[in-house]
Structure formats: structure tokens, C-alpha cells
């Protein structure tokens, strides 16, 4: 069964049509890599999935239920998101990673510490960095904290918006492998927007091409036609 489903989703922003009928089904434990030109609506697709936007037309379903009937905060604890810009909150790396737990009132220090440690490990955030000020980190370090922050909630679906564009190759491979193995365990599914064809091939079970607010091609990596992509 598909965990997240877009049916003919239309969305206009600022009077301009941005999504023009997006159809997409994300299976449980699947990674769909989304590629497409700048401005084609990739971020907008992700923002609809966790209800930062509501579609003008069409439907988005999470576990079979239309998301417009779900409580947004409830939905967002199951559908996590890593933004294209990794904006840090004031405070330490640890406080940033545990943010999603704090705002839900989870304050048992052992529960928090465990979730932070687990998320930090996947996102290659070193334990030595946990007490540093998050706003002073480098670009790649911030991206890793942003990934850890979204993982700490333990979402079923993770929306990733170019989450690794500034991360060094060694840590990049670690993070890709760790996320893909979470998908293999079948508990977490990913919509992963990337500008790198190589990354799309490495992580995607399927690759979707979004052009002008429509999915123009969706296929497994060895069948995906890069010749007509973008």
C-alpha cells in the first residue's frame, strides 16, 4: 500500500500556477528521488505533503486518509521535512536536534538523549558538536543538523529538499547509506529532491522527473531516460 499519494494536485502561488496536476505514489519503505529544473515546483510538492501548503485542487493522502482532514501537527509528526535552507534555531546543536521533541512536551532526559544520539549518528553529527552553537556551524554542518533534527521525531515519511548539497563526499555516503537502510527496514519512506543525477541513481528506488509542475517521467534508475530528463 502506498504511504503517501498525490492525486492530480494543482497549486497556484502568488497568482501563478506552480503545480499542474501532480500524480505520485510513494510505497512504504520506498525512496523516490525527484529531479527537475530549478523552479519546476519540487519544493512546492514537498510543502504540500506536510500541509505547509494546501492544494487548490486534487488530493494528497497519507496512509489512505486525505491530509486535509488530518490535524496538521499530528500529520507533521509522521511526515517530517528537511528544508532546502537549513535555518538553525538559536541555541546548541543538541537543542536544535531535540526541537521537535521539546515542542511536543517530551522532556524525559533519557528519551531525548536517546533520540538525539540515534538521529545524530545517522546524520553524521559528531557527539563533540552537540554543545556547540548551531548558528555558528558551517553550511555542511548545518545541513547535517537539519537532517538529524527531522529524524529525531521518528517520522514515517521524510521529505528531503536537497539535504546534502554542501556535505563532504565521505559523510555524504554515510548519510545516504544510513537513510537508504532505514527505507530497507521498511519503516521509513522518502521523497528526496536532488539536483545530482548521481545521487538520484544511488538512493532512488525510482526517479521522478518534475517539469513545469508535472511528473513527466517516473522510472527505476536503470530505466530512467536521462536523455529526455529536465
Amino acid at each position: 500500500m502506498s504511504v503517501l499519494e498525490f492525486e492530480n494536485v494543482h497549486k497556484s502561488l502568488g497568482g501563478h500556477p506552480i503545480l499542474n496536476g501532480v500524480d505520485l505514489k510513494l510505497q512504504k519503505g520506498e525512496v523516490i528521488a525527484i529531479v527537475g529544473p530549478s523552479g519546476s515546483g519540487k519544493s512546492t510538492v514537498l510543502r504540500c505533503a506536510n500541509r505547509l501548503h494546501d492544494p487548490d485542487e486534487g488530493a494528497i493522502k497519507f496512509d489512505g486518509a486525505n491530509v486535509d482532514g488530518l490535524d496538521a501537527r499530528q500529520l507533521r509528526s509522521q511526515v517530517g521535512m528537511v528544508f532546502q535552507d537549513s535555518a538553525m534555531f538559536p541555541g546548541t546543536v543538541r537543542e536544535n536536534i531535540s526541537f521537535g521533541l521539546t515542542v511536543r512536551g517530551v522532556d524525559d532526559p533519557r528519551v531525548v538523549a536517546k533520540a538525539v544520539a540515534k538521529a545524530a549518528k545517522v546524520a553524521a553529527v559528531s557527539r563533540r558538536h552537540l554543545d556547540r552553537s548551531a548558528s555558528k556551524l558551517s553550511g555542511g554542518e548545518k545541513q547535517r543538523v537539519a537532517i538529524a533534527r527531522a529524524l529525531a521525531i521518528g517520522p514515517e515519511v521524510l521529505l528531503l529538499d536537497e539535504p546534502t548539497s554542501e556535505i563532504d563526499p565521505k559523510r555524504l555516503r554515510h548519510i545516504e547509506d544510513a537513510l537508504v537502510s532505514m527505507a530497507r527496514e521498511g519503516k521509513t519512506s522518502f521523497l528526496w529532491v536532488t539536483h545530482s543525477a548521481d545521487q538520484a541513481r544511488r538512493v532512488g528506488d525510482r526517479i521522478a522527473n518534475l517539469v513545469d509542475g508535472r511528473i513527466t517521467q517516473i522510472a527505476q534508475p536503470d530505466e530512467f531516460d536521462w536523455g529526455v530528463a529536465y
Partner: peptide, 22 residues
Amino acid sequence: LNRTRIETSLALGASSTQSIEP
């Protein structure tokens, strides 16, 4: 000015009140 930061906190499950409070 802090739109991204506010939306990030919303996406992490903060309420409107929590995200705008600072």
C-alpha cells in the same frame, strides 16, 4: 525575515504560538 525558520519549526511539529513566540 524569519519565514524559513518559522516554517521549519512548524514542520517539526511546533504550534503557531510556539513558532512565533520568540
